[in-house]
Design a protein around this nucleic acid. Structure first.
Length: 351
RNA sequence: CCUCUCUACAAUCGG
């Protein structure tokens, strides 16, 4: 039996999951009943090879025949289902292990919480797991804290996010750049721009040198809060610090120009990015058309649309929605109809 | 003899 297990394990380590499976079959054919370790090495082999369906089949079979694994088995199953984003399967495994009276390890909690915090639907579950884990005296990892903060941010749960951040610091876990951008982003989305900027400054004083993602999150926060001027200040600042703006930076800034009707600034940014050799994409064009459209500059919007097509870009739904919205708002209904036809001709659908 | 996971940046709309 030990020999079979070793062979399956060796196959798994080499990524030979088919061989691992066939050794498993041989073993049963030869009259050896697989033990928990056999199961674990097989699951590890399949998980490592991303054979998610096979792992799920084995899990279903375990359930139907009432087979029970140990902590290693359940940890392996959870980590595979997390990698596969199979929330339901992962939670079933968790339930099964709790039913058996096994205490989940912090690795199992971390995987589940990161998985659940990726979708608003399961965020409540992530927070339940978080409380349960804390109650059990376990400390979450840095990446788990970050995932929770980000997940809460997407759902505009900024107070909860700050609470988790507080726990993190109490536990002596040091924030990194992911923590910083998630917090800034979270606070920005929740219209807490003052807190977002304060957090950004505090973390910098703690010695975290912001990278472009952090600055882009900050620009996003400014954009959401109609602070185009503040956004521009940070745009200069990040360059003084030696960072090079990318397409996300420019697209976000152009969006920030929409609400203040700063369409000239938006156009300048558009020119500047091209001078720097950054090719605009549909995000950029949609933002630019909205920026000029907000000032009823419908002719400019049309020019931009024509220019992008001349340059070989394929406008998508967002670009067309921005353009059609601009024309409609400007009372250009005939043009709107024409653009609409062109959109249909290009096979782009509304919505 | 066996699992070692997981995290951050841009698109609704209007006055």
């Amino acid at each position: 039996l030990g020999t079979y297990n070793m062979v399956i394990n060796a196959c798994g380590k080499l990524g030979r999951w088919r061989e691992a499976m066939s050794v498993w079959q041989d073993m049963r054919a030869a009259g050896f009943a697989p033990d928990v370790t056999s199961l674990n090495v097989l699951l590890a082999a399949l998980g490592r090879a991303d054979r998610w369906d096979e792992v799920e089949d084995i899990w279903r079979e375990m359930e139907t025949v009432g087979a029970r694994g140990n902590l290693v088995t359940y940890g392996s199953l959870v980590s595979t289902f997390c990698k596969a984003s199979r929330v339901n399967a992962a939670l079933e495994v968790y339930d099964a292990m709790v039913r058996l009276g096994l205490e989940p390890t912090s690795m199992i909690y971390s995987g589940l919480m990161a998985l659940c915090s990726r979708s608003g639907r399961h965020l409540g579950m992530a927070m339940d797991l978080y409380e349960e884990m804390r109650a059990g005296g376990l400390v979450a990892s840095l990446t788990t804290y970050n995932a929770l903060i980000h997940g809460l941010g997407l759902e505009r749960e900024w107070e909860e996010a700050l609470r988790v951040y507080g726990h993190m610091r109490e536990a002596g876990v040091h924030p990194d750049l992911y923590t910083c951008s998630s917090l800034v982003y979270t606070l920005g989305l929740a219209h807490q721009i003052v807190l977002a900027i304060r957090t950004f400054n505090e973390l910098r004083q703690d010695g975290l040198q912001p990278n472009l993602e952090v600055y882009n999150s900050l620009l996003m926060a400014c954009q959401v809060n109609n602070e185009w001027k503040v956004a521009m200040d940070y745009f200069w600042q990040l360059q003084r610090e030696g960072l090079r703006p990318n397409i996300v930076t420019y697209s976000t800034l152009i969006s920030a120009c929409t609400k203040g009707r700063m369409w000239r600034v938006a156009l300048q940014l558009y020119d500047r990015m091209q001078q720097e050799g950054i090719a605009p994409n549909n995000f950029t064009y949609a933002a630019l058309i909205r920026a000029v459209g907000s000032a009823r500059e419908w002719e400019l919007a049309l020019n931009i649309w024509q220019e992008m097509r001349r340059m070989g870009s394929h406008p998508n739904t967002h670009v067309y929605n921005a353009l059609i919205g601009t024309l409609g708002r400007s009372g250009q209904f005939e043009l709107m109809e024409q653009v609409h036809c062109q959109m249909a001709a290009e096979g782009v659908t509304r919505d």
